[in-house]
Write a protein that binds this DNA or RNA. Structure first.
Length: 833
DNA sequence: AGCGTCACG
DNA sequence: ACGTACGTGACGCTC
């Protein structure tokens, strides 16, 4: 029989407060109530080893009993300040212990306890109520016992039905009749004057209940007593009502939520803060491995055994380990694994949902109710983290480093507990909605895109490769014609030696290790020597050939001739996706030669076309919305070219008069604004002096005062809170925002400005992807390139589907400036118009 | 493994 | 005096 412990929080804290000396920490916090409560709770966990636990608290001073009798508990002195502050501490501690607590408006802790005991009966649980309040004794029955604290805190007396009868000589249910007659001075329940415990017990033993007493009132006691009973009949019944625990408090909970989990690591810190040094050794936060020694592992489990459970699972090559928080089950048969994954009655927590979906697909199954993905949850909490290994998750969310490959079953158990803590923290930080409505559904979209893949025109790839190989050989020859001997052009070290030592060209920039030979340097040397032009060409051609042609070729699927990139959802600190093996988010487009690579990406069926829909100026639109800058909003409302408008503002000319040069500069400033502008950065980008760059920026801020104050406020808020957020509440911590190092602090400030913008843009397109996926349109989503979605669509359906996609993309969120989407289509990713 | 370089948004 | 524009990934070289 499973065991439930219900604790009367108010009662225990009060009792501890008055029983113990007024303990104080060095910092002046009062801790005696917390200390006594904690000691008791730890003792209960240790001695009773319950399966479930719950703590009930009173809420507010008033409850429904005041409606019938407004003097109820009227004589109670108000809670001392030294005690009041301790309730909050206890609740914080319970959070870290993963122990649920409840309070309900208009009810007392007793009523919650009564309600829980009642519901526990339906679950066939053995319940122990821990309290210092004798009123609770009325709940004692075959399945409920009460631990009553006596003097002190941990000194208790256990009341089951037998014990109760022995002490009082009546049934526990009759306790309220006793109370009705004798009243309770501490609760200010009046009762019948002149009737004490002895008399009350005598009457109730004889007549069963108050009703019985009044039916036979003429036989009771002497004439004086009869007089009092008759005169106070109403009071007696009201008193009984007041003493009766209400068992139908509307609280929402499931017993599985009350599972005893693992203490949060932070509990140790809390104990140290509270100076509970004597309790620290008791805290012995057990590792999953230690606990697993006692855990039964059921091999060759049938998936049916797991129905209706909430579980976490860990999938190794040939085995799925499933844990329901108590037991670990082992699924070794592929058919059983399949059934388990597809069973809609099983709530599943996994480590990495997207890889589970892929693995499941390999055994021909579409998992259901994969409700929790630990890596995604951890990513939203710490997006700047590089990896979310099990080691990371267990040290950070259950305070344990002992999970290891040697015992894969431990992973399922650890995961079960990790997930509870991740969820809790997501809720605390208001990230749950983002998680549940955006990131988790997006995982399925990304899985589908990865499975779809992009078809490749192999023949054309070969042609391009030949062409670029020939060009590379020509360039190589030309480069060597200027040097004494051949060298490795791809080696920056060797090239630096040739340029700056053999050809004696001026050194523009240095790297940590030697001369810099990057594009910006070569561009400045262009007029100095004819070799430079060829080097620039060589670099470009070599890049295209190695990265985009040869690199791509090796990743074409043998069976389907397609490329299946991996969209990683947990890499970027801002919320963007990333793409690897291959990276399809950086296929060349800006320079014609590179752009040709896009010709190899083609539809996989001849009646299909590729369609790309991209958000126009999404980041600047978000900046306009967030900053509420009137000039920027005006530009977008009038559908003006944003860079031209900026140039007109900054140079003080009409829109029509803006020159190409002015627009180019304005565009660079606009980009800079989104990046968290600096004069140095702008000067590098435009190839101008820092002084000049600073003048541009100053002029910009004169015209765009809303943007200026938005940037200042954003930095200010980051300094205050330590993090920044997007419109969808995605969060990124900026720890260095208060650094004493100018360099680190400046970097942090730019990050603080850029992240809400870039992150909101990421939120928006992610939402669009989820919406499009849900709409089940006649299209295959293939790629996402930050502000761009690429689809494959049947030619004959394109005119119908494209507007549907566009409407969804433009409608993801209502900003103060409209979101607009441009459409391009073609028979490959190059020919798009 | 870390660096330099360069492709994209 | 400081010395970078924001966010990524892949390649080749060097150690």
């Amino acid at each position: 029989m499973k065991k439930l412990i219900v604790i009367d929080g108010n009662s225990l804290i009060y009792r501890a407060f008055f029983a113990l000396p007024l303990l104080q920490t060095e910092g002046g916090r009062y801790t005696n109530g917390v200390y006594g409560f904690t000691t008791m709770l730890l003792k209960m966990l240790e001695d009773e080893k319950p399966d479930y636990m719950l703590v009930a608290f009173d809420k507010g001073k008033k409850n429904f009993r005041h409606d019938t009798y407004k003097e109820y508990k009227g004589h109670r002195p108000s809670t001392p300040d030294e005690l009041r502050e301790q309730f909050k501490t206890v609740k914080e501690m319970l959070e870290l212990m993963n122990i649920k607590f409840y309070e309900a408006e208009n009810y007392e802790a007793d009523d919650i306890i009564g309600t829980v005991c009642e519901q526990a009966k339906g679950q066939k649980l053995k319940t122990t109520v821990v309290t210092g309040d004798k009123d609770i004794l009325q709940l004692v029955d075959e399945s409920v016992e009460v631990m009553l604290t006596r003097k002190g805190i941990t000194n208790t007396e256990r009341y089951d039905v037998e014990k109760f009868k022995e002490v009082y000589g009546i049934n526990p249910a009759q306790f309220i009749d006793i109370k009705g007659l004798m009243g309770d001075s501490s609760d200010n329940i009046p009762g019948v004057p002149g009737v004490g415990e002895k008399t009350a017990l005598k009457f109730i033993k004889k007549y069963k209940d108050i009703e019985g007493v009044y039916e036979n009132v003429e036989e009771c006691g002497g004439p004086k007593m009869r007089e009092k009973l008759k005169a106070n009949k109403d009071i007696a019944f009201i008193s009984k009502d007041l003493a009766t625990i209400f068992k139908e408090v509307p609280i929402d909970f499931k017993f599985e939520d009350l599972n005893i989990g693992i203490f949060d690591v932070k509990l140790k810190d809390m104990f140290m803060d509270l100076e509970f040094n004597s309790l620290l050794p008791k805290l012995n936060i057990e590792t999953p491995q230690q606990q697993l020694k006692e855990l039964e592992i059921k091999g060759n489990t049938n998936a049916k055994d797991l129905q209706n459970k909430k579980v976490a699972f860990w999938w190794t090559d040939s085995t799925i380990y499933v844990c329901d928080g108590k037991l670990v089950y082992k699924l070794e048969d592929e058919k059983q694994m399949n059934q388990f994954l597809c069973d809609e009655s099983i709530d599943k927590i996994c480590y990495d949902k997207k890889s589970v979906l892929h693995k499941a697909s390999d055994i021909g199954c579409q998992p259901k109710e994969l409700k929790f993905c630990s890596v995604i949850a951890a990513y939203l909490l710490k997006p700047e983290q590089k990896e979310y290994t099990m080691e990371f998750l267990s040290t950070n969310y259950i305070g344990n480093t002992a999970v290891c490959d040697e015992f894969p079953q431990n992973y399922s158990y650890a995961l079960y507990n990790i997930a509870q803590n991740l969820k809790k923290e997501l809720e605390e930080k208001k990230l749950w909605k983002l998680y549940l409505e955006l990131e988790l559904p997006l995982t399925e979209v990304l899985y589908t895109m990865e499975r779809n893949g992009v078809n490749i025109d192999r023949e054309h790839l070969t042609e391009l490769k030949d062409e670029f190989s020939k060009r590379l050989a020509d360039l190589e020859e030309k480069i060597y014609s200027y040097t004494d001997e051949k060298f490795n052009i791809n080696s920056p070290k060797q090239l630096g030696k040739i340029l700056f030592e053999e050809l004696n060209l001026p050194v523009i920039k240095k790297t940590k290790t030697g001369y810099s030979t990057d594009v910006s340097v070569l561009e400045k040397l262009r007029t100095e020597h004819p070799i430079i032009e060829h080097l620039l060409q060589y670099r470009m051609v070599a890049k295209i050939k190695s990265t985009y042609l040869e690199g791509m070729e090796g990743l074409i699927g043998k069976n389907d001739g397609k490329i299946h990139t991996h969209f990683n959802q947990t890499i970027t600190a801002t919320g963007r996706l990333s793409s690897t093996e291959p990276n399809l988010q950086n296929i060349p487009i800006r320079v014609e030669e590179g752009r040709k690579v896009r010709k190899i990406f083609v539809p996989h069926q001849k009646d299909n076309i590729l369609v790309s829909l991209d958000y126009s100026q999404i980041e600047l639109r978000i900046m306009a919305h967030m900053s509420q800058d009137s000039v920027m909003i005006d530009g977008f409302k009038k559908e003006q070219d944003i860079h031209t408008r900026t140039a007109a503002e900054v140079y003080g000319v009409d829109l029509e008069e803006v020159t190409y040069e002015q627009r180019r500069n304005a565009k660079a400033v606009n980009f800079g604004i989104v990046y968290g502008i600096s004069d140095y950065g702008l000067s590098q980008n435009l190839g101008i002096s820092r002084k000049q760059a600073k003048e541009y920026i100053d002029r910009y801020f004169e015209r765009y005062v809303g943007v200026k104050s938005f940037i200042e406020e954003t930095v200010e808020k980051a300094k205050e809170k330590g993090y920044v957020t997007t419109l969808f509440n995605r969060r990124r911590y900026i720890p260095e925002i208060n650094s004493r190092s100018f360099h680190r602090r400046s970097f942090a400030e730019r990050t603080a400005v850029n992240t809400p913008i870039q992150g909101t843009a990421a939120d928006i397109i992610k939402k669009a992807m989820v919406d499009i996926h849900k709409a089940n349109l006649a299209c295959d989503m293939l790629l996402q390139v930050h502000d761009d979605l690429v689809f494959e669509i049947d030619k004959s359906k394109a005119d119908q589907v494209i507007p549907q996609i566009r409407t969804l993309m433009e409608g993801t969120i209502k900003l103060d400036v409209a979101l607009t989407v441009d459409v391009n289509k073609g028979n490959n990713w190059y020919n798009m118009e």
